[in-house]
Amino acid sequence: MNSGMIVKMAVLSVLVAGAAMTVAAQDSILLTNGRKLAARSIQWREGEKAYRVETPEGAISTIPKAQVQRVDVKKPADWDKATAMMAAKQYAAAIPLLDGIATSYRMLGWDGEARRLLANAYLGMKEPKKAADALESYMESMPKAEIPVEVTQTYWNVLLQAGRGAMLKKDLDEVIASGPRPMVAAAMMMRGNMNREGGQKEPALLDYLRVVILFENIRELQPEALFKAAEILDELRDPRADELRKKLVQEYKDSEYAAKVSGKI
């Protein structure tokens, strides 16, 4: 899924790095003042909005969320099993494991990725509404800047497939209005997909062209945007599709989209 390849610059401020799961031998918590605390265990206290940290010496302290930059917790015991099941497309078996991880590891760095995989599992079982539900509460409870990019994109895809166009549109509009550049580009791409799904060819085309013209430096999205814009132009019997394909093949020749069009030029 090429939409998933977004520059991580957009989330330098992300506190919980969903995509970069650090597998530390011991848990640790990095504070905003730069201090790092090793921990025997870390728990999240929803009511207090704080972390309960037990140090290796047995001392317990409560640290408010605002003072925490990042939490590194050991990989959940079922994680490898769950991901192996996902890889083997054993979605039904993976779901309870992922659900358990998402609940038990709330705010501990693994929940975002678990929810993303959970959503993908439901999508794999052709249950987009459940996929949307799996992510919704997470998305609503987390500050936008802290949500990993891949989770956001999965969420959007899920909303699209679940037919929750209005919600998706609202989210996209928000990001487009005020998000960081790479996220804005991804949101425009997604809006293009949404318009296309709804049969709105011209608005979709314009969104793809916006990505091409206004976000030329977000290179990861360019091949997909050029490819999809060319497809729509073909449908509209517009010969300018060739120019876009040419640009795709010349400037992004190693991308999978360039491979798809090489026969057409």
């Binding site: 011209e202 085309l205 206004l214």
Partner: peptide
């Protein structure tokens, strides 16, 4: 900015629509 880009890219008709 998008309109200007569309004109440069050879899509003046779409620039007009935008």
């Amino acid at each position: 900015q998008f309109m200007a880009g569309l004109i440069d890219a050879g899509f003046p008709d779409y620039a007009n629509k935008v």
